[in-house]
């Protein structure tokens, strides 16, 4: 089966994915004063802005959780997702030079964008742990579900990035669609507000966005000490799996035309 063969070849090139991710991180923060601290500063500054605007001015309810940690615990996974996509989608076109001159499995390039975003995620997560201690958040065993959430989210990001980065080779509009789309997508996910704010009759529709149950689950297992809403999380996992498989097979189908078109 060609899917298994592709996966096997990708595994052979796993070191390239690590190295390329490291390269992306290095290049991104080279010649900046703060360097890797930007990985913390970006979500942290956004959290401060959100806290001032939504908590102080608009008084968005946050389920009794202090608003800074309420929003930061959602911003960290959200920014991981958004950065994965906004850097993954144009990545193939950015690397034209290499694609037309040397062979390796092309999915390495968008995957490495996600790898680099993951490094930022881990760093920003350290601050989240600091805040959890600061706000005296009670840690429960549900925290062990964290890897599961990460896997679901990465599957979704990989599927979208593979599909959209390949499409972006043929139509450069795709990248802009996603840049705008990610803004909207954030408002459609429970980042600045709580899922409780969503009217019950729309809840299934709302939760059909896989990022909604994913973000909600992060907040539940890390901050609220509650289990995720299983039915929604399972739905998100299934949708993510379908998107992953679809995106990957589309990518592999288009891959052979990349060098001729770019």
């Amino acid at each position: 089966m060609s899917f298994l063969r592709n996966i096997r070849e990708l595994i052979r090139y796993r070191e390239l994915v690590f190295m390329w991710s490291a390269r992306s991180v290095k290049v991104r923060y080279k010649q900046t004063l703060l360097g890797i601290l930007w990985a913390i500063f970006r979500p942290f500054a956004t959290m401060v802005v959100f806290t001032v605007i939504f908590s102080k001015f608009f008084q968005v309810p946050s389920e009794g959780i202090p608003y800074p940690i309420f929003s930061y615990s959602a911003l960290v996974p959200w920014m991981f997702f958004a950065t994965s996509i906004t850097t993954g989608v144009p990545s193939l076109v950015y690397n034209i030079g290499i694609v037309t001159k040397i062979y390796f499995p092309r999915e390495v390039i968008p995957l490495s964008s996600i790898g680099a975003a993951f490094v930022d995620f881990v760093i920003a997560f350290i601050i989240l742990i600091g805040m959890m201690i600061f706000y005296n958040v009670a840690i429960t065993l549900w925290i062990f579900l964290l890897p599961v959430l990460i896997v679901i989210q990465v599957m979704l990001a990989v599927g979208i990035s593979l599909f959209a980065s390949a499409a972006n080779v043929f139509y450069r509009d795709v990248r802009f669609i996603f840049e705008v789309g990610m803004q909207l997508w954030m408002y459609l996910s429970p980042v600045i507000y709580s899922v409780e704010a969503v009217p019950q009759k729309f809840i299934w529709l709302y939760m059909a966005n896989p990022m909604a149950p994913i973000i909600d689950s992060y907040r539940r297992i890390l901050i609220a000490g509650q289990p995720p809403q299983w039915k929604f999380l399972i739905m998100a996992a299934s949708i993510s799996l379908v998107i992953f498989l679809g995106g990957y097979s589309y990518f592999k189908k288009m891959e052979e035309k990349f060098a001729d078109i770019i």
Binding site: Y13, E15, M19, W20, R23, K26, I98, K101, I102
Partner: peptide, 26 residues
Amino acid sequence: ALIELGAGFHPDLTGRENIYLNGAIL
């Protein structure tokens, strides 16, 4: 294959970093 100049070299990385990256690509 060495098809064109510096295929796989990233201009911002050093020669050392590029050797590792290029080796991995190959």
